[in-house]
Design a protein around this nucleic acid. Structure first.
Length: 438
RNA sequence: GGGAGGUUUCCGGAGCGGUCAAACGGGUCAGACUGUAAAUCUGAUGGCUUAUGCCUUCACAGGUUCGAAUCCUGUACCUCCCA
């Protein structure tokens, strides 16, 4: 199976600018490909995973990937897929974000390979020093406004309902767009030309919402006398219910362990719907076609084993957080789902329960008869009042180190320390809190 | 400007002088079931050293009564109707 066929099988090809020839073109010799990333935060999130994984695949197949962080375009805001004008970020914020993102990319791309080492570029570097007049003369001149107006990304924002897809063009939220956003396309188009000049980049990949920007770049290159360039888009990663992948009630799922812990990250994937799991396996993991098909067979026969979700979580956590992150996530998972907590040290507990609230108490409390379970629950913040704590215990919903509390008379003593200083309390299925005794 | 009505525990909403910490529904929290799902079922749901006890709560402030969320007076806010 060729590289391109593999991409297709994985469902990573949505549209290309040359369906007939691109497979052979990619096989012919190593190509240079680029994809852009939005520096709206100092970390990437699951939404950006597709781009990273696609570039990674290209690199593994021998092609040279360029990750472009939009330091310049980020100052303007891509109107594609947005329904409203975007807030602009300051230069400093963007600089910080670009650095953070570049760091994360190292996990996906090899920047040191000899022949096809990945390149990280920031388009602010080649656009930041432009003057307005230069830009208008060199780039703007090559953009017919009527063509720009015909792009879906523009059309939907202007609320014109004469597009090919009338239903998607919600004319009732015609919020309009500023001249600044209108110009976004020109900047991204020029990126492609620049990368072709500097790195011989011939292919731009992006999400399907980037199609208009990609073709704009190809058009611009032609008008400016550059070679024929190519474009490829992947489908947007959506869930079977139509919503975006990588969002939880509490916000985006980030790749930065400080924003989304390895455990939470792992859990996100374990909880993916059955209907979406195998799609994600294909698109996002490095597993081979055979492996994935095996998993799918098991999944169909025994959905309750959640094989696809487990594999997905394991593969992606390993990729994003490394072996250590995966181990912590798995350990945390077994503990959060009932395994008894014992024989751990403070450091392990601290990692596993990093986002669990904790409270420090004096060691004295453990002496004598110990600390009454009801008081312990209140101290740990798991119950608002003693009455509430009492109810929880009576209903069998209180746990010390994942062992169910037998009754109201039970106390927390030295024997209950799960590590040097810490007792893990739990109320109900998922609510944990730590008591640290100093 | 004239007229009518409302304000209750997280929300909606009963309550019409004692048996009201206050029906019922929703939510929430526990438990069971389960695939770390959904649905369902069970229990709990003001606080207090769990008590046939005490304290705080029915817009706010006073009053009548042995006794008030319930009656009266005033204050604030809200809704509706007629101009």
């Amino acid at each position: 199976m060729s590289f391109y066929e593999d991409l297709q099988w994985r469902g990573l090809v949505h549209q290309t600018t040359n369906d007939a020839g691109i497979a052979a073109w990619l096989d012919e010799k190593p190509r240079t490909v680029y994809a852009g990333f939005d520096p709206t935060a100092d970390s990437l999130h699951v939404g950006s995973l597709m781009g990273l994984v696609v570039l990674r695949r290209f690199q593994q197949a021998g092609h040279k990937p360029i990750a472009v962080v939009g330091g310049a375009t980020g100052m303007i805001g891509d109107p594609s897929g947005k329904s409203a004008e975007r807030n602009l970020l300051s230069k400093d914020e963007l600089q910080k974000n670009v650095e953070g993102i570049g760091q994360q990319m190292r996990k996906f791309l090899d920047f040191d390979a000899n022949d096809n080492g990945a390149v990280l570029a920031n388009n602010f570097d080649w656009t930041g020093s432009w003057t307005y007049l230069e830009f208008l003369r060199d780039v703007g001149k090559n953009f017919p406004v009527n063509v720009m107006l015909a792009k879906d990304s523009v059309k939907s924002r202007l609320g014109r309902s004469d597009g090919p897809d009338k239903s998607a063009t919600a004319s009732d939220d015609a919020s309009g767009m500023s001249y600044t956003e209108f110009s976004y396309m020109l900047l991204q188009a020029y990126d492609f030309v620049h990368l072709n000049d500097e790195h011989g980049c011939e292919l731009q990949a992006g999400g399907s919402d980037q199609w208009g920007n990609i073709t704009a770049g190809i058009d611009l290159a032609r008008r400016m006398g550059r070679p024929q360039l190519f474009g490829l888009t992947w489908p947007l990663l959506t869930k079977s219910d139509g919503t975006k992948m990588g969002k939880t009630e509490s916000g985006a799922v980030w790749l930065d362990p400080l924003r989304t812990s390895p455990y939470q990250f792992f859990q996100y994937w374990v909880n993916v719907d059955d209907a979406d799991a195998s799609k994600c396996l294909r698109m996002l993991t490095d597993l081979s076609r055979e492996q994935i098909e095996d998993i799918e067979t098991v999944q169909t026969a025994h959905p309750e084993k959640r094989m696809a979700q487990k594999q997905l979580a394991e593969q992606l956590t390993l990729l994003v957080h490394g072996q250590d992150g995966l181990e912590v996530a798995e350990q945390a998972t077994s503990i959060f789902f009932g395994a008894e907590i014992a024989d751990l040290n403070d450091e392990q507990l601290g990692q596993i329960f990093s986002e669990v609230p904790s409270k420090e108490l004096s060691t004295d409390k453990l002496g004598g008869d110990g600390l009454a379970i009801v008081d312990a629950l209140v101290e740990a913040g798991l119950a608002k009042s003693k009455s509430e704590a009492r109810r929880t215990v009576q209903q069998g919903g209180a746990y010390i180190n994942n062992r169910r509390v037998a009754g109201l008379e039970q106390t927390v003593t030295n024997a209950d320390l799960a590590s040097e200083t810490t007792v893990v309390l739990r109320s109900g299925k998922k609510k944990y809190a730590l008591l640290r005794f100093r």
